[in-house]
Structure formats: C-alpha cells, structure tokens
Simulated assay, not measured.
Amino acid sequence: MFFASDNSGTVHPQVMQAMAEANTGYHHGYGNDPHTTAARAALRDLFEAPEAEVFLMPGGTASNALALATIVQPYQAVYCSGLAHIHVDECGAPEFYSGGAKLVPVCKDDKITPAALSDALSFWNTGDVHQFDRGALSLTNTTERGNVYTLDEIRALAKQAHDNGLLVHLDGARFANACAHLGCTPAEMTWKAGVDVAVFGGTKNGCMAVEAVIFFDPARAQGLPFRRMRSGHLLSKHRYLAAQMNGYLRDGLWLTLAQSANDRCARLVAGLRAEGIEILTQTPANLIYFQAPRRIHDALQAEGAMYYDMRAAHAGPDDMVRGRLVCDWNLTDADIDCFLQKLKAAL
C-alpha cells in the first residue's frame, strides 16, 4: 500500500532490459553513441518534430532549470503557478542556473487562468527598468495537484503568452499521465498548442532516471549544451540515459504505463467516494488529494499505508487533514482494494 510518490516504485523490466542491452562493449561518452542517436530520433518521431533539438537529463529539476535558463535572461521573469514545482520544490535551481531570473507566481492554485496571467503581466510589466522584463510562462501538465490542462487551455495561455512576448515552457514530469487522460498526441499537447520547450518525463513513470528536454525551434536551444555540461548534468556514460528512453518509448510503453497509473487512480477515487471521503481536486490523472479526520489517517498509516498527509502539529483526532495519494504504473487492483478495505475498517 505505497502511495507516497511515483518516484518510489520500481523500474519497468523493459527499461531495465534496454539498459542491459546497452551494457556491452565500448562506446564514446557524453552522448556520442548510437543509443543516444536512436533516442533523439525516436523522440523527434514521437513529437512529430523532425527539426527539434533533444537533450537527455538525469532528473526533472535540472531539466526545468536548464531549459528555463536557456530561454530567459537573468533580468527577466518566469510566470508560473504558486504551486509550480519550479517555485516550491526545486530549491531555487531555476533562479540559480538562469543567473537570477525571477519566478513570479501568478495564482495560488496549480492551474493558471488567462485572467490571472493578465493581472500578473499588468502588475509586473510597466516598462520601468526597475522591474523585471518579460521572459517566459511555465505550465505543468499533469499539475502538482493532479489536475490537467486541456488542449484548449494550453492553446489559450500560449497565445496570450506569445502575444505578450513570453516563451512557453512545459514541465512534463507527469507528461504521459496528462496525454493518457486527454487522449492526445505529444505534439498536440506541446508545439501544436504553442509550447516552445517541453520536458518529457520518464522517471516517475517506469524509468530509473531520465527526462528529455525538447526545443521545437532549434534556434532556442543555443547555449543549453554548454549549460548542461557546466552544471554537471551531461553524464559521461550517457548511453545509459538513452537506453532508458529507448526502452520507455518502445512499443508505446510510456503511454501504457501512464494509462495503468491513471486507471488505478480512478479505481481508488471511486472507492474513496463510495466511503464518503471528500476528494479535493479533479483527479483526472494519477494524483489524489482528499481530506479525512486525523484519526482516519492515523489508522491507515498504522496499518501500513504509505502516503503524505498535511496535518498541523496541533491537529486533533477529529480535525480534517488533507492527504495525497499517488498511483504509479505497477500498483495493482489488489493494492487498491487492500487500501480501501483498511479505510472501511478505520471508518
């Protein structure tokens, strides 16, 4: 009953097999190998972007931070949600690697609206040299609260951003889960909707440690190879990043795993609602935010359920406490049913 994070599960056997296949003989390092060439070609095919520049990274923080540092200047602003991973979970990496670009949260929630972005642009962009200049808009799909931007929402925000001189970055740590929910192609969720640079995540969805940063206009990518090397994120044995990506993409595994996680999440949501538990977000993908009395959380965790709750230190047994459940690709229906049985007993 492990629902703490989709970072915590195992690596899919197909990905491990791909790494084993790459673990023979000698190859040049730093991405000058046939596995990396194949991975870059496969990603271009997947995104229907034959001219795209593709860079593999070992983690999401480096992917976001270096992508943003490449498209904004140190004196510019990156507009994001108040719950964006780049804002609350990356220890200032985007600011650090960009040389000081300012993150501007435009709303308290996980999804930015055109109205909120308009208000932020009006407040921060007066043309006064004492303020930060316009740089980029950063969106996350799937969001940090498990919600999903629709294609229409992405298109509207991207157009608004471009009309105001902003480039658009997409944090796709759970990219596959959003695609699976929307029933769209990666191209439809990115460059066809107006995204300039996207992070295509693998680590949370069956890989060991690999993300891809994709610039749809190659001219926008100038400088990233140097930033990646300078920051220590260009691995010498780069073929093992590429091997993961090749295994992940083979036979559409990336989408199959995401759909499995989303399906388990839907089963869990239905079970929670059947027991009268309040679900706090839309939960279209693989994250659930819910609330229950603290004593229910205590009982579930005493029975071995692993997940995060957001209790205050002074919360009493009957005080409502928010919890987060994350479903990953290798959860089974039996895992979900076991959790629901424990919940029913606790209630």
Rank of each mutant, 00 (worst) to 15 (best):
A120G: 07
V321R: 06
A136G: 04
Y75K: 13
R324G: 05
A334R: 14
T332N: 07
A346F: 11
F200G: 02
I86K: 00
A38Y: 11
Y75M: 08
P114F: 04
D89Q: 14
L234Q: 13
A65D: 12
M16F: 10
H162F: 02
E153T: 02
G323N: 14
I296W: 08
P105M: 03
C179I: 15
T10L: 12
R311G: 14
T126A: 01
R228N: 03
D263T: 15
S122D: 12
A4W: 11
C179A: 13
L234H: 11
C327M: 12
V195R: 00
H297A: 00
P114Q: 07
E90G: 03
D171T: 04
L66M: 07
G25W: 11
F47S: 00
A77I: 05
D163Q: 10
A270V: 07
G276S: 10
L300K: 07
R239Q: 15
Q291F: 09
L253K: 06
D33K: 06
N141W: 04
C107W: 11
M1S: 03
L43F: 09
A42L: 10
T24W: 09
N7F: 15
D251T: 08
T150L: 10
F290Y: 13
L46H: 06
T126F: 07
V168K: 00
C207Q: 13
L121H: 02
R145K: 12
D128E: 11
D109H: 12
L340N: 02
V326D: 10
T142R: 01
N164H: 15
P74G: 05
Q291W: 13
N286F: 11
E21K: 09
A49R: 00
P74E: 01
P13L: 11
A270T: 14
G316P: 07
H314E: 15
L325P: 03
N125Y: 12
Y149I: 01
